[in-house]
Design a binder for these strands. Structure first.
Length: 579
RNA sequence: GACUUCUUAGCUCAGCUGGUUAGAGCAUCUCACUUUUAAUGAGAGGGUCCUGGGUUCGAGUCCCAGAGGGGUCACCA
């Protein structure tokens, strides 16, 4: 960890000390740097720019992002939730009377980049044609004590000194959002995508529901769950890896369509397409099959793209993707045949294993037929599907929750939507035969015994629900994070999650000043001894009195402390008081 | 989890085969400046070179260990 990220409060940078001093000065002037009262703006920046006329009376609130001070007049940039707006501050306009404190002291000396202010004034256009606000009243709304990264953008649109370190950006997303406008745009797009889907589903009369995140049996997918413990019941509980089985119970219960934006949790690796928690949209609609679902999904994806880009096309890492429906349908068998020359039709496990080896796909003994086919597709085919394509008709062994194909008994009615070489959606004609479902679960159990640690658990209550009868149903899961990545041209999932998972940051507990005092350091020295790095009795004990004296006198000189220098006797007396 | 690479001022980065007091731009501070826009001009301050060991007369630089990040791979969506 960078030491700058866990500085003790007394080890402030020069800029931070100056800002704290300004805070004190503001209070001396009778200005509350953190006022309680609401501040009502009449406009936001972009809205004002759109309706701009000279001579409008306007109040704005936002963050002061830059100042260009030229003696008795200044320009400043103010940033609000929509964008930035230029302020013009003229000493005599802001302070018409004798007292010029607001301009000369408050604005020029005590305000800093990052402070929240409110301004009231009159709009006008500068000589260079820039829409501006002539400020007549200035209100301090909140003082910022830490300097923001000094990002600058020049006339040509080039960014200088960008705040680009991923570690700092993800750990301090609040700073990232302030100084990197494109980051805010990405999350606005994310919100628009989710809103478009929700509005579309609501319009069709489907019900948005909430199902348990804490589950006793983590079902509905094949993945390692996070485990936790419920104290009152004294049982293990799992964070859901999927919500599928609960939504199907609701179809059993009589809802015709149900959907949920489900935060799922999987205890697996992290990389630029995987985060331990991620969002999947699950939708189940009764009396439908997977053909209907393909039409629904291609229409939906097209609409979502339209809402983000205003058209059906998007550029993704140099690939022009056309989201306009209809999308190509390719069977899994044809996909594998095309890209490997292997025909999986009618092959048994041994034949598939040797076929894998012949095309250079690694296998191991825990892999069943389904897993082998999955490997063939994942290794050799998946990345070829750049334009939206439905891969359909998956082998039975890969799909324990899916209905067998109406014409082809070795396959299921399942599709995955591939875009830019990545899976975006996964859908079935849902298996609703309770007896077959029980057999499928038992096959999964056998795979688990063979060492496949992702094989599914058996959910007896879910089977009971099916025994009461589930209508023919089609269901789909859409990886929302990946969909957002595609529609915002991001290559990392961390760029579409506001707070991606990171290893926790280590903050120092800070020095224990009391312990230093008890150790024998006089109180006027404790803070400085700690700041010099001797923040515990243990570190002091490891240092010789002579060396400590030398270090502290050097520290005193460097920081121009007004306390007198230490003699060796002083320091030795600290030490001897401990023995 | 494996491999690889990075960590120097508030921010973005230089720093050569180890060698005076570790540099630049922006930011900050002081002064000047009443329509600028990466404002400008003059001056100043600001550093645990990620941490801990080691080699050396001498380490930001070389070696070892550790922390955190990025990339690639594995697992997965």
């Amino acid at each position: 960890m960078r030491p700058s990220m866990y500085l003790y409060t007394m080890q402030l940078s020069e800029q931070e000390r100056i800002r704290r001093d300004s805070l004190v000065e503001l209070r001396k002037l009778g200005i509350d740097p953190y006022p309680a009262a609401a501040f009502d703006a009449t406009h936001r920046s972009t809205e004002l720019a759109a309706s701009f006329k000279d001579g409008m009376e306007v109040t704005l609130a936002g963050r002061l992002m830059s100042r260009r001070i030229m003696g008795k007049a200044s320009f400043a940039e103010m940033q609000d939730s929509e964008g930035t707006f230029q302020l013009y501050l003229n000493r005599d306009e802001l302070c018409p009377g004798e007292d010029k404190t607001t301009y000369n002291v408050v604005f020029k000396k005590l305000l800093d980049r990052g402070d929240f202010i409110g301004v009231t004034g009159e709009t006008f256009t500068t000589q260079t044609g820039e829409q501006s606000l002539l400020v007549k009243k200035l209100t301090v709304l909140s003082k910022s004590l830490k300097p923001l990264p000094a990002v600058k953008v020049d006339d040509a649109g080039n960014t200088h000194d960008a705040f680009a370190d991923p570690e700092l950006r993800y750990r301090m997303r609040y700073v990232d959002l302030v100084v990197n406008p494109h980051v805010r745009e990405t999350f606005e797009s994310r919100s628009r995508i989710i809103r478009t889907i929700r509005e579309s589903f609501d319009q069709k009369g489907w019900l948005e529901v909430d199902t348990p995140v804490l589950q006793a049996i983590p079902g509905g997918a094949a993945a390692r769950p996070f485990e936790t413990h419920h104290n009152a019941l004294d049982i293990p509980l799992y964070l859901r890896i999927a919500n599928e089985l609960y939504l199907k119970r609701l179809i059993v219960g009589g809802f015709e369509g149900v959907y949920e934006f489900s935060r799922n949790f999987r205890n697996e690796g992290m990389d630029r397409t995987h985060n331990p928690e991620f969002t999947v949209l699950e939708l189940y609609v009764a009396y439908k099959d997977y053909h209907w679902m393909m039409e629904t999904i291609e229409t939906l994806i097209g609409d979502v793209c339209q809402s983000v880009h205003g058209k059906m096309q998007a550029n993704l890492g140099g690939n022009e993707i056309n989201f306009k429906p209809p999308y190509k349908r390719v069977t899994m068998r044809d996909a594998i045949l095309e890209h490997t020359g292997v025909d999986i039709d009618g092959k048994d496990e041994a034949e598939l294993r040797s076929a894998c080896q012949s095309v250079g796909v690694d296998t191991d003994d825990s892999m069943g037929k389904g897993k082998l086919i999955d490997e063939l597709f994942g290794e050799k085919c998946e990345h070829h599907y750049i334009q939206p394509t439905f891969i359909i008709d998956y082998p039975v062994e890969m799909s324990p929750l899916t209905k067998v194909h109406r014409d082809k008994p070795d396959y299921t009615e399942r599709f995955e939507l591939m875009i830019n070489g990545t899976e975006v959606a996964n859908a079935y004609s849902e298996l609703n035969d309770p007896i077959v479902q029980r057999e499928r679960f038992e096959e999964q159990l056998k795979l688990g015994e063979r060492g496949d640690d992702e094989a599914m658990f058996i959910d007896q209550d879910f089977l009971r629900a099916l025994e009461y009868g589930m209508p023919p149903t089609s269901g789909v899961g859409i990886g929302i994070d990946r969909l957002v990545m595609m529609l915002t041209n991001q290559t990392s999932i961390q760029e579409v999650l506001l707070f991606p998972q990171m290893r926790p940051e280590v903050f120092s507990a800070g020095p224990n000043l009391k312990a230093l005092e008890e150790w024998g350091i006089p109180c006027e020295w404790t803070e400085h001894v700690a700041a010099a790095g001797f923040d515990s009795a243990a570190t002091l004990a490891e240092t010789s009195p002579a060396s400590l004296r030398e270090k502290m006198n050097g520290y005193r000189k460097k920081n121009k402390l007004s306390i007198s220098a230490l003699s060796l006797e002083d320091v030795e007396s600290w030490y001897s008081s401990n023995h």
